[in-house]
């Protein structure tokens, strides 16, 4: 009897979400197969790579990052340079300076940075808050307003502040809403349900289902992404058919493998190389588990991951 290969194509598909405008706008999602399973069906939209920049500047960045942005003095210049990074599809502006437990910058000051970046680049923009839920509620509301007409993705609406953030981004200012949950598949679905019930169209929602650096409870991340895609594709569950974006840089550069200096850990070798290693391996892993976009910061990581995606597609 001849062998009949069976396609692993599903009847359901991930929603396609467009971010940005004009020629450089990107589409994420749309696939009806498992990650990179192009042999089962064509994947129209390859996973995308974003470059993270911070309103706190470059002082605490590794040498390779500083070198890449050499000569940039303003956030607008940094953003422009980030947009040009080989392999980059979009830029993510992280407003971490707003954190009340850190620099506690005013919302007005942060919005100046948003405006400067919006004016400086023509690639799609993702705006991330400072992770303080109350401050983010106000900050992201204003950021969504400031970037009106640019079709940006706002990261993120969480269980604690989704009403304010999703209403501003998704309803008032026509942006894309990021729905963030911390490696909890049931909450990921619930948040999508709640945001949808507010009237935000499902194809205007992108999920951040949470992440961790490889080696740090990462198997939970993988199983969360696997189960999300299994429900979305296998069970046709419309409430989890949103594409997934994963900010990798935050996790990867904040674990001891990336933070311990070479002086403290001579046997571990170059600190920067370790950071890149964590960033690349985490990004590769979340992409293989179903992320439709990753956010990185090191030029070497961006080049490596974008090449990996190209080679696998």
């Amino acid at each position: 009897m001849p062998f009949n290969g069976k396609s692993g194509k599903f009847n359901a598909s991930i929603n396609t979400v467009e971010i940005g405008c004009g020629e450089k706008a990107i589409k994420i999602g749309g696939e009806n197969v498992l990650p990179f399973y192009t042999f089962d069906a064509a994947i129209e939209n390859a996973p995308k790579v974003g470059v993270m920049i911070s309103d706190l500047g470059l002082d605490n960045e590794p040498a390779g990052v500083k070198a890449y942005y050499e000569g940039c003095t303003t956030i607008a210049e940094v953003a422009k340079k980030a947009a040009e990074m080989p392999g980059a599809d979009f830029v993510c502006l992280k407003l971490e300076g707003a954190d009340p437990n850190g620099e506690n910058k005013s919302v007005e000051e942060c919005i100046e940075a948003v405006k400067a970046v919006v004016d400086a680049i023509d690639v799609p923009l993702v705006i991330a808050g400072c992770k303080h839920v109350e401050k983010d509620n106000e900050l992201l509301n204003k950021a969504a307003e400031a970037a009106q007409g640019k079709n940006v993705l706002i990261l993120a609406a969480k269980e604690e502040n989704y009403k304010g953030v999703a209403a501003a981004a998704g309803l008032a200012y026509g942006q894309k809403v990021g729905a963030e949950s911390a490696v909890d598949i049931n909450l990921a679905k619930q948040l999508n349900v709640l945001i949808s019930k507010m009237g935000v169209a499902q194809n205007n929602i992108v999920m951040n289902v949470g992440s961790a650096a490889v080696g740090y409870g990462f198997e939970y991340v993988v199983s969360t992404m696997d189960r999300t895609k299994a429900a979305a594709l296998g069970q046709g569950d419309k409430d989890v058919q949103m594409p997934i974006i994963t900010p990798v840089a935050d996790d990867a550069w904040n674990v001891k493998e990336a933070m311990a200096s070479e002086a403290d850990m001579p046997a571990w070798g170059s600190q920067e190389a370790r950071g890149i290693g964590m960033e690349v391996s985490t990004a590769a892993s979340v992409l293989a588990s179903g992320s439709n976009a990753v956010i990185l910061k090191h030029p070497t990581s961006v080049a490596t991951i974008s090449k990996m995606i190209k080679d696998l597609m």
Partner: peptide
Amino acid sequence: NNNLYADSYLEI
């Protein structure tokens, strides 16, 4: 396990 649990499952 025919449907993924979420707190709102009765309303979906």
